[in-house]
Measured scan of single mutants.
Amino acid sequence: YFQGQLNAMAHQIQEMFPQVPYHLVLQDLQLTRSVEITTDNILEGRI
């Protein structure tokens, strides 16, 4: 994955969860590489 793709995914998640800091979303995406998994992590309070 290149950074631009991760940034696009992070923006997509931020639209759904504007209360979660962008850098935390991006940090999780770098591990998961998945909008779905990061979204689940937010919903389950891991982020």
Rank of each mutant, 00 (worst) to 15 (best):
E44K: 15
D28W: 04
V25D: 00
G4R: 11
S34T: 02
L43I: 11
I42C: 06
Q3P: 13
S34K: 04
Q14S: 13
L24N: 05
Q14K: 13
L31E: 14
Q3D: 14
F2L: 13
F2H: 13
Q27R: 11
Q14C: 10
P21R: 04
E15G: 09
I37Y: 07
E44L: 12
R33A: 09
L29T: 01
L31G: 07
T32V: 02
E44N: 15
I47D: 01
N7T: 13
H23D: 11
E15K: 14
Q3S: 10
S34C: 06
L29K: 00
E36Y: 09
N41M: 02
M9V: 07
Q30K: 13
R46P: 02
V20K: 01
T39C: 12
A10E: 01
Q12N: 07
Q19A: 10
E36S: 11
Q12Y: 12
F2G: 12
H11L: 14
F17S: 01
L31R: 13
E36H: 08
E44A: 15
V35K: 09
L6C: 06
Q5S: 12
N41A: 03
M9Y: 09
Y22D: 01
L43C: 08
V25N: 01
L26Y: 10
T39S: 09
M9E: 05
I37S: 08
F17E: 00
M16N: 06
R46F: 07
Y22N: 04
L6K: 03
T39I: 15
F17K: 01
F2R: 08
I13L: 10
I37F: 07
E15M: 15
L29C: 03
H23N: 10
E44I: 08
D28I: 04
G45I: 04
P18R: 04
Y1T: 12
A10I: 08
R46K: 12
G4S: 14
N7Q: 15
V25F: 03
E44W: 11
T39P: 00
L26D: 02
A10C: 04
Q19I: 06
R33D: 07
D40L: 15
Q14F: 10
P21Y: 05
T38V: 02
I42E: 01
M9G: 03
L31A: 11
I37N: 06
Y22M: 09
L24V: 09
L6A: 04
P18W: 03
A8Y: 11
G45N: 08
E15T: 12
M9C: 08
M9F: 09
E36N: 08
R46H: 07
R46N: 07
H11T: 11
I42N: 02
L29W: 04
F17V: 01
I42F: 04
L31S: 11
D40K: 15
Q14A: 12
T39Q: 07
T32Y: 05
E36V: 10
T38M: 03
P21D: 08
A10L: 09
